[in-house]
Design a protein around this nucleic acid. Structure first.
Lengths: 203, 203
DNA sequence: TCCTTTCTGTAATGATTACTACAGAAGTAC
DNA sequence: GTACTTCTGTAGTAATCATTACAGAAAGGA
């Protein structure tokens, strides 16, 4: 059933993807509407009609990022046979995703808006929520490992989840600083050197 | 010998410290000159006369931060008897410094300007240089440890330095997300669990 | 065919931005 | 006491900011 009114002349998802790239590279506050409309190939009224405001566009961009970029990071975590392998793959995929030549380096969720409270800068609060959700995913994988028997009971799942999330965030900054895939991989390996002391079956 | 001309009516260092606090909390791009002049208790012409521009004020603020905030982090690194103890103390002091109730959480060097190239956003390039310098300090301490005999020869000092710098950066984001001193300390302990696998005397 | 709805582009709004012109103030030098 | 230097506050600049008014375009409905 065709909708009434003039059909939109642009592909909303493609435009949103362009906006996502600019927000990812320059951050919420470092990105102007002029830059966004230019990257999207649209005039301002079209952007506002489709997305509402700069803040709502950012929110949509973050959702698009979560769905399409870095999904392989979390796939790797859950697909591995053991929790240890999952965390190693998680960090390895992180290194790959954060250093692609054809994308902004580092993670939009980690870096896109780090200043201001959620009430002042809603973008900031939203990214914080995403980061907390990511820790929960890591925590869940550890609980699964305990259930599967490849992670001993009694380990501090929260500590381990928060540690590896912290490493991942640090890898974002490292990538943004020009760190190479090799450097990020070596950092990932260093982080995995902690595994036995944290969640090893031997003590 | 008194300087000619009307004496400045404000304490430059005190004003600079106020500006540093705002930049630290809100980042370079998230901070307006209106907010800076208000925090410094000055009118704009006084700020520009003393510091030149927003970018130069930021540069001075970063130097003030490096000299006065977090100095105990690097003191701890060098004062310990062994490299291992130094790194543990380094991370512990990091946790303390990043979570003080009376200061912005996290590190200004890590978080203050993460978007834009050095040519576009000089603030960004300056912080990146500071982060690289910090890695060099970590690397030096490891080299010292090899010389002192408490770090085996042949360890990958670069990997270890980059790993612990990465963890420290991640701790900034964790602190900015409201992570408590206890949480940061547990993450620091998790990071130290990697030490034996990276720079231990046994293998 | 006209009406209604939705979209688009041009041009604009009011606020904010980093920064400065200028007159007067407060000091030292002569 | 006047001249010169440096600082300060008021008022402003030109540009940019996020956002919108409005007229016309492009669709479907009656």
């Amino acid at each position: 059933m065709p909708a009434r009114g003039r059909p939109r002349a642009f592909d909303r998802d493609a435009a949103l993807f362009c906006a996502m790239r600019v927000f990812w590279e320059q951050g919420y506050e470092g990105t102007s509407m002029a830059e966004l409309t230019s990257a999207m190939g649209l005039n301002a009224p079209s952007v506002y009609a489709a997305f509402g405001s700069k803040a709502e566009l950012f929110k949509a961009a973050v959702e698009a990022y979560s769905e399409h970029v870095g999904a392989e990071i979390w796939d790797a975590l859950s697909k591995a046979e053991t929790a240890r392998q999952g965390f190693a793959d998680f960090l390895d995929q992180t290194a790959l995703a954060y250093t692609r030549a054809d994308q902004p380096h580092g993670c939009m969720i980690a870096l896109g808006a780090l200043h201001g409270g959620a009430d002042i800068v809603p973008a900031c609060g939203m990214l914080r929520e995403k980061r907390l959700e990511n820790i929960r995913l890591l925590h869940e994988r550890l609980s699964q490992g305990i259930e599967d028997g490849d992670v001993p009971e009694g380990v501090d799942c929260r500590q381990i989840a928060e540690f590896y999330a912290t490493v991942q965030h640090g890898m974002s900054i490292m990538a943004r600083d020009g760190g190479s895939l090799e450097q990020l991989r070596r950092t990932a390996a260093a982080a995995m050197a902690a595994w036995d002391g944290l969640a090893g079956t031997q003590s």
